[in-house]
Design a binder for these strands. Structure first.
Lengths: 145, 145
DNA sequence: AACAGGAATGGGAATCAATCTCATCCTATG
DNA sequence: CATAGGATGAGATTGATTCCCATTCCTGTT
């Protein structure tokens, strides 16, 4: 069992520690996300679960995702195409950003200390407290470029 | 006549050069955007025009905005709240990014060469061609921080 | 200046993601 | 094992955006 499991476990721990009860919908969504490191839309999650014969209400899926995001277990990724995507966040994983390949549509994750540093300095220069930031690059990935 | 006018003129030139005809809806939207440097949603544009007694069809507003974005005359700004915002782009203006104040909701524009440099280097490091990028900071602005 | 062909417009229907409602089900606990 | 309250789900609803298409408006050409 690869790290996927450790993420599932981590989710269980965090939610249990928060005093929440368990439930089928949550377990199904978490199990699905655990096996897919890439970002999925809520609709994709619903369809994939249906395909697996694990019917899950739309409202529950959105509720679960919102909960996971609130607890920092899942990251919401917006690509500007009118639907949010969700991907698991590793407890020990550095936060990262994405490049959308405009040819193949692939989403490539990356992290870059230089970028983070630039943003920190920027916050100081502007005199604002930056609590979070999103960076989205668009271009051509290695294969398509 | 401040720069607002030069932007309107620039829009007219670009669209005329593209062989497009003129039309009322377009002129109304451009006139409105010319006077508002801040980012407006399509719905806000529709309401503002109605308030001015310059009724304009929803479809036309979206069509005009799409056209202006295609021609690089207007920038689409996504804050992740489920609606796109639009603001004019100056022909000579450096491109910029935004900070959303999570207290007052204000949108603050800024530019930062250090950030741009970091992104350029990042593209090289990753070996990808970065064609465009978006950066969105969330935090507290000077007044609220 | 009338014409023609193609753009532009706008009202309303249609989409589509996301949210809300609320009755019912299930979990963890005493 | 009874129970209080969290969790679930089907369907209705919202809200932005897009689609459809008949009508109106521009503009280069007679």
């Amino acid at each position: 069992m690869p790290e996927a499991n450790s993420w599932s476990d981590h989710v269980q721990n965090v939610l249990a520690r928060a005093g929440l009860k368990r439930g089928g919908a949550r377990e199904r969504v978490v199990a699905l996300l655990a096996g897919k490191p890439c970002a999925l839309t809520a609709v994709e999650i619903e369809q994939e679960l249906r395909r697996q014969g694990r019917l899950t209400g739309r409202a529950s899926i959105y509720r679960v995702l919102e909960l996971l995001v609130e607890h920092g277990l899942v990251e919401r990724v917006e690509l500007g195409d009118g639907q949010a995507r969700f991907e698991r966040v590793h407890p020990d994983g550095a936060h990262h950003h994405h490049l959308v390949c405009e040819r193949c549509g692939r989403l490539i994750a990356f992290d870059d200390p230089g970028l983070e540093r630039a943003i920190d300095r920027l916050g100081e220069r502007l005199g604002v407290r930056v609590e979070s930031h999103d960076v989205l690059l668009r271009g051509a990935c290695k294969k398509c470029g």
